[in-house]
Nucleic acid binder design. Structure first.
Length: 491
RNA sequence: GAGCCAUUAGCUCAGCCGGUAGAGCACCGGACUUUUAAUCCGGGUGUCCCGGGUUCGAGUCCCGGAUGGCUCACCA
């Protein structure tokens, strides 16, 4: 891939042209160019601009030669405009130089008169042109675009140049994130930033990345969640906070998992998980409405209706419905394992009741949750940071939102009892000691914060990349991350 | 981490049963002053992913490796 610059003839030809430009006194990399218009301004204001002189800057992407005249396509960030070059308008020398020394892919500034061709296309009759950047490598083909997915990810700039749909996805991603901010800001949430490098990685069940700080002579973990620091801010009285932040999980890569990804977490004092359900469905439907103009979307051929309210189903009901077993009647771990095995689930024999429940859920229920659905009341064993239910101490006030069979949001009434929290951490630490690399450890610093008193609160986490996938109809998370994690290529 | 698939010109791809490398676009030379996948004439530009092996002969068959994709595992 890292072909030496002189490796092939096409590059050599361009380098020769670069040299010739310099010899003719043209700077192939000038410092400055000030276009008067963007392409979209010209296309959108043709009646007012017809016959006027304007200038635009952008990348030349196609050329159609006709002897002593030629057409070219110029793209800027707003769109494409056709350029018309004529020898008798430019003079023989300027015309020939453009013809001989400018290539597809070069970045140009052009000034000329706005007109419409015989075929009705708004175009620019070029009176002056200058090269703004000489391109030394040939671009991928215009008709088929760049298809090689490996090149698309490794050289995303090429993907963006030649595949216009790709740009659309990332424009939309930006709009989605802006929409999330606007929604939360309106409701009085304060956007904050918390550390990415932490002495312990907590707040989720995941293996962390480790890094090393030289001056402090110690290891840090890259965060796997935003949770524990945001809750410290509730203790501090901020009451409504959110962070849109990158988190890092040292796990496998798939169409739904990138090692670094973007999470939204928000926390609201004096709210519970019911409030967070309403917040979740309002947030997602509102963002869809803003970005797509509708809450009825298509994802990979499925019609999905995001209009609130979304149906709610407890995890036990869902399992009863789709797997035909009733965990409410099961109390001991061994009995739960027996039920799991009968359903064909592989178990090691160390699973607790709630862990079996979760496996059964994943295996039998998730595949049915195409339309937005809240699954509520999760087992306590797999929810060490959520508040215990008052009417069933085996469960917690927690829900996940599923859309298109995928977990999109995870939320709960936050556990603020420091004694209970310590016990949960200890249980997690025991699992870690038994070899569960994803279990959490006791976060003493966080416990001290809770001991000062955290108000009752609801918290919500949303996988932003997965939301963007949903709203851009993208099948892979790599389609919504500009530079997804890849193994570096050895040469 | 496992299974399957892919890797051939700058890009998109073909290449049969093993016989010495092909197309379109791009590019180079020529013609052409309103074309738009411009057109017409001429030109193939290559580490067939890498390394071994089998064979008279390997893009093709076998083994190993690299990278990527999909599925699975992992991801409460």
């Amino acid at each position: 891939m890292h072909v030496a610059l002189d490796a092939n003839e096409l590059v050599q030809q361009r380098q020769n042209k670069l040299q010739l430009l310099r010899e003719r006194g043209l700077n192939p990399y000038p410092n400055h160019y000030q276009p008067t218009h963007q392409v979209v301004d010209i296309l959108g204001n043709f009646p007012a601009l017809e016959g006027q002189e304007v200038s635009v800057a952008g990348r030349m992407m196609a050329r159609r030669e006709h002897g002593k005249a030629a057409f070219a396509d110029l793209y800027d960030r707003s769109g494409r405009i056709q350029l018309y070059f004529r020898q008798d308008f430019l003079g023989e020398e300027a015309f020939k130089t453009w013809l001989d020394l400018v290539d597809i892919g070069d970045i140009l500034g052009v000034a000329g008169l706005v007109f419409k061709t015989r075929r009705g296309e708004i175009s620019l009759e070029v009176r002056q042109w200058e090269i703004l950047t000489k391109s030394l490598r040939p671009l991928p083909e215009k008709w088929h675009g760049l298809k090689d997915v490996e090149l698309r990810y490794r050289q995303r700039y090429l993907d963006l140049i030649v595949n216009p749909q790709v740009r659309e996805v990332f424009v939309r991603r930006s709009q989605i994130i802006k929409g999330i901010r606007a929604f939360l800001d309106e409701r009085g949430f304060l956007e904050v930033e918390t550390p990415s490098m932490q002495p312990e990685a907590g707040g989720a069940a995941a293996r962390p990345f480790i890094t090393y700080h030289n001056a402090l002579q110690m290891h840090f973990y890259l965060r796997i969640a935003l949770e524990l620091h945001l809750k410290r801010l509730l203790v501090g009285g901020l009451e409504r906070v959110y962070e849109l932040g990158r988190v890092f999980r040292n796990e496998g890569i798939s169409t739904r998992h990138n090692p670094e990804f973007t999470m939204l977490e928000c926390y609201q004092a004096y709210a519970d998980y019911e409030d967070m359900m309403r917040l979740t469905e309002e947030l997602i439907s509102r963002v869809a409405e803003e970005v797509l103009g509708t809450t009825r979307i298509a994802y990979q051929g499925e019609e999905i209706n995001l209009t609130p309210p979304w149906p709610r189903l407890t995890m036990q009901e869902a399992i009863r419905r789709y797997a035909g077993v009733d965990f409410a009647a099961i109390d001991v771990d061994a009995e739960a394992q027996e039920v799991g095995r009968r359903l064909g689930i592989e178990l090691t024999g160390t699973e607790m009741r709630g862990e079996v429940m979760n496996k059964v859920f994943s295996e039998f229920v998730e595949q049915h949750l195409v339309q937005p659905t809240f699954i509520l009341d999760y087992p306590l064993e797999i929810s060490p940071l959520a508040k215990r239910k008052e009417d069933d101490s085996r469960l917690v006030y927690r829900f996940e939102a599923f859309i298109a069979c995928r977990e999109l949001a995870n939320a709960f009434s936050e556990l603020n009892d420091p004694v209970d929290q310590r016990e949960r951490f200890v249980a997690q630490a025991e699992k870690f000691a038994r070899g569960d690399a994803e279990a959490q450890k006791v976060d003493e610093d966080f416990l001290v914060a809770l001991e000062y008193g955290m108000p009752p609160a609801g918290g919500l986490g949303i996988g932003v990349d997965r939301l963007v996938m949903l709203l851009t109809d993208s099948p892979s998370i790599r389609d919504v991350i500009l530079f997804p994690t890849l193994r570096p290529r050895e040469d």
